[in-house]
């Protein structure tokens, strides 16, 4: 079976981002960029399915400018087989990305598409579900276990009340949650090998998708900062403050 894994180039999760003083955007100059962590979990899951002999091919797709080839190479170094970059301006909205991915799904006919549940920059949590809807496919979001049997995949989902398991008929779309797996580190030989793996570059025009968005960000602001309070000496003082000063107990 073939697995398609869309990945997003996003700011590294250790970077502390700041809003630009003129509120026009975020100051990301020279910031370290990585594969979005949830996408990395998706790559790892696909590679594990290949190692178990369930998957035969793992294809990585990333949408954005040339810089995202770096993240495709990273995914190839983790064990994926080949990559596709669709060259577009950065910062498309989720619907546009889902429409482009839909075209790739039509072209590649994967049995399973695994995506991160959200990216840590725009924090939308939309693309996988939108892709599933556009392709008319079932979805298993926020997966903590993915179990493939014949033509079905059982997905255990992390939901607000606990866990829910659903059975989807393949082809299907899965989005990853944090506890699905712990991604490996790429070894140096695999990083070298990844440089020789095939990477196709396509343009958005190849797919005839309208890339104009109906969403406009008017401004970016820093959130209200919380001030640190006081240190209390002991439990007695804490309880006294909560009762008489904060009046919350």
């Amino acid at each position: 079976m073939k697995i398609l894994v869309p990945v997003k180039r996003a700011i590294d999760y250790n970077v502390k981002v700041r809003v630009k003083p003129d509120n026009s955007g975020l100051d990301l100059a020279n910031a370290k960029m990585s594969i979005n962590p949830f996408c990395e979990i998706a790559v790892e899951e696909a590679v594990r399915l290949k190692e178990k002999g369930i998957a035969t091919e793992v294809v990585i797709i990333s949408i954005g400018d040339k810089a995202c080839q770096e993240q495709i190479r990273t995914a190839l170094a983790l064990g994926a087989d080949r990559g596709i970059q669709i060259d577009t301006p950065n910062a498309l909205d989720s619907l546009q990305v889902a429409k482009l991915l839909q075209k790739v799904v039509e072209e590649e006919s994967p049995d399973l598409v695994i995506l991160g549940k959200q990216s840590i920059d725009s924090d939308n949590n939309q693309t996988g579900q939108m892709l599933a809807a556009l392709c008319g496919l079932p979805q298993g979001t926020f997966a903590s276990v993915v179990d493939i049997n014949d033509n079905k995949v059982n997905v255990t989902r992390e939901v607000d009340g606990g866990l829910q398991t659903i059975a989807l008929t393949l082809p299907a779309i899965v989005t990853t949650d944090l506890r699905l797996n712990e991604p490996r580190y790429a070894s140096l030989p695999n990083i070298m090998k990844a440089k020789r793996k095939p990477l196709d570059v396509k343009s958005a025009a190849d797919y005839g998708i309208d890339l104009s968005s109906k969403l406009t960000v008017l401004k970016y602001e820093a959130p209200a900062q919380r001030k640190g309070g006081v240190k209390v000496a002991d439990v007695a003082e804490l309880v006294e403050k909560l009762k008489n000063e904060a009046k919350v107990i």
């Binding site: 909205d93 989720s94 619907l95 889902a98 924090d123 939308n124 949590n125 939309q126 693309t127 996988g128 579900q129 939108m130 892709l131 599933a132 809807a133 556009l134 979805q139 979001t141 926020f142 989902r157 992390e158 939901v159 607000d160 968005s213 109906k214 969403l215």
Partner: peptide, 23 residues
């Protein structure tokens, strides 16, 4: 924006061909 809303709403948006505003 619970796990229920996050799960089905993007499908609604995509099939209506509109963007979703999350959270």
């Amino acid at each position: 924006a619970t796990t229920t809303g996050k799960n089905f709403m993007p499908r609604v948006a995509a099939l209506l061909d509109v963007a979703q505003i999350s959270d």
